[in-house]
Design a protein around this nucleic acid. Structure first.
Lengths: 207, 207, 207, 207
DNA sequence: TTCTAAACGAGACGGTACGTCACGTCTTCTG
DNA sequence: CAGAAGACGTGACGTACCGTCTCGTTTAGAA
């Protein structure tokens, strides 16, 4: 851990009686780097402060817990853009694959760490729950829209389906099985859609 | 203060050059109690040793990492007995509800902690993965059996369905939503079964 | 039990980014007390930290080894004042007796422990050697001065005589024979002075 | 420490209800080797037992303390043969030089460790004191004999002179200054003899 | 000759202390 | 007055030995 080199930035100081955004950025960048390099095990406030050439009290002031830091690091990743334009099944498969791709690129590990942190820190648990609720709501709304467009079998419950999708991707994340296999993902999506693909008329197609 | 005087405590001692099972039990019991009382945050080898009146080196010898301790604590819980006798949907609903009930009774928190630990400790990750693989296989086999008995729509893929069920319950565990609502669980199961219950003829029943 | 809660103890704290001299004093006082009470065997960093209500890392930061602690404890004893005013033989006898008296008062045990520590810890050996070199040089200079004043037989080699005196007192310390017998000490001094007493005129007396 | 290879001896066992001298030898040899290789710091009963392929209780049975082991190791060294045949000054110089030579060959370190151990362990202190008393008595007797033969100035007190010689050599040992410089040693001896060599007439000789 | 008793190797055990890491709080000083 | 710097008390980490204990084996010597 110790060999995390301090950043090159030499001599960032106070900018007076208000928050220094350079410091904020330096801390978040350092946090991201350290998490990337050493994982959750090496992710200590001490290490982040040293790397960012920031004081520990500064960090504690703005991010009262490790979880706050992790969450902000996670949210700084530019979010996933999903179109939800084409046929819903294709959209959903693409969404899952894109998410896996994004997660594999480092963001997933941060979310994983947040999940772990949430087991110790109730505030992290709350923040995580909020985040997941939003995600679930988004998925549910996508399902609902698709239902309204008669692209899904009417028996599908949007809330249940959304939870299943979310559980599936989170579990894949947590157990580190993010390898992208489009056919596999499609199988899962179809299973959730009712075990069979859905035709343009909204009825299940028989293979 | 003085130099390694023999302790006055006349308690559990070595029983010769082989493992003392009393010590093993005392440690595991202490570990379970401490995890129950203080959660993962208070679950330190130090605390377990103190509570069990055992030496730290003894614990490190038999359980090289916190995860090993947690796993053994988890496995000592008497396992869930599932009948898989009646109609599959009822069995599965009952299985999930029984699991939730069992988890709520303390075991769930241990598994949660193992999930968290797995984010730091690769060996814990491996152990957890092994455990989940077994669980998934069991579920898959239950699905397969049910398929052979024509209790499920043939389009259902046992592997995919098993993963969905497992993901669902694990995610519920991790996010602490283990409140048992049989109807909700039934909805989820039905969704996985194809959005609707399946009749004796293999066709979807309409409610 | 819980995760690093702030202590309830409202005692000595950090005084900012510089060394807290109160802590320094408390540690040294505790070290002295513990060494006095329990000897080298009970002199552990752990015990000193506990008694001083200080943290182990703090101690290790300022005194990287047990020997550093012991040396500073030894040096805090107020030093021996020697006049070197009267006839040299009397002065030397008085010096040795005063040293024995001082050592008997606790300081000797600390030096003993430093000698012991020097067998394990090369840095302690170095520090001890430096200390003894200074002492030897002081004695040698006293001998040299006395020679210049014609108070000693010219055949006396100041360096050799100084080493003999130092060896004598150190060996007495180490073997715990500090009981003060002025006549015995005078015999030793006279032996070093050439086997004969020195008369009032500064010349050796012939038996 | 751990890489001290166990001895090749495979399978030394009990030889019945009496002490196994092979074990005794193996332990002492292992103790000597370990002390030689790692010094007092690495000299633990654990390490000796492992190296000797002996059980710790066996060692504790025959050598109740580390000091006992060290003392026996020291005494196993074949002792120094001193002639005391020629002129006493030459004999004494030769004695000191021979002792330094012997000590430099490993034996000195053991004695040093005993001195250190004596600061913690009263029984070691006693044993060491006994050993030194014998040595002092031997030296004193040599001085006395020499006095009777009129080889020394009559003012010399054998007891004091013996203590001075012993202190000198012990202090040299403890401070690690065993380099043999015959002239230096001769200077010390002459200083003790009265600052100058003594002729047959009892008067100082001028070189 | 059989049986007892001791010595042996092995190593587990409850402990103490080691030296290190990170925690979260505190204060000083710089800009 | 925000921020860097870093000292502080605390507590857990994982390791090394301590000295004791019991095991099962081996053999000499008493019965």
């Amino acid at each position: 851990m110790s060999n995390a080199e301090p950043s090159q930035h030499q001599g960032r100081r106070s900018i007076g009686a208000r928050r220094n955004l350079d410091t904020r950025d330096a801390v978040l960048r350092a946090a991201e780097d350290i998490h990337l390099e050493f994982g959750l095990g090496g992710f200590s406030v001490e290490a982040v402060a040293k790397r960012a050439r920031a004081g520990k009290p500064t960090i504690y002031k703005w991010w009262p817990s490790r979880a706050d830091l992790l969450l902000e690091v996670y949210h700084r990743q530019k979010p996933l853009a999903v179109a939800w334009a084409g046929p819903f099944e294709d959209d959903l498969v693409e969404f899952v694959c894109a998410l896996f791709r994004w997660w594999q690129n480092g963001a997933g590990a941060v979310l994983c760490s947040i999940v772990a942190e949430a087991q110790r820190d109730p505030s992290a648990a709350l923040a995580l729950q909020g985040y997941l609720d939003v995600r679930r709501a988004e998925l549910e709304s996508a399902f609902r829209t698709s239902l309204l467009r008669d692209q899904l079998r009417p028996a599908i419950r949007p809330d249940v389906a959304a939870e299943l999708v979310l559980s599936f991707i989170m579990q894949r994340l947590i157990s580190g099985r993010l390898a992208i296999d489009v056919e596999q993902v499609r199988d899962v999506v179809r299973q959730i859609f009712g075990g069979v693909p859905v035709g343009a008329d909204g009825n299940p197609q028989v293979d």
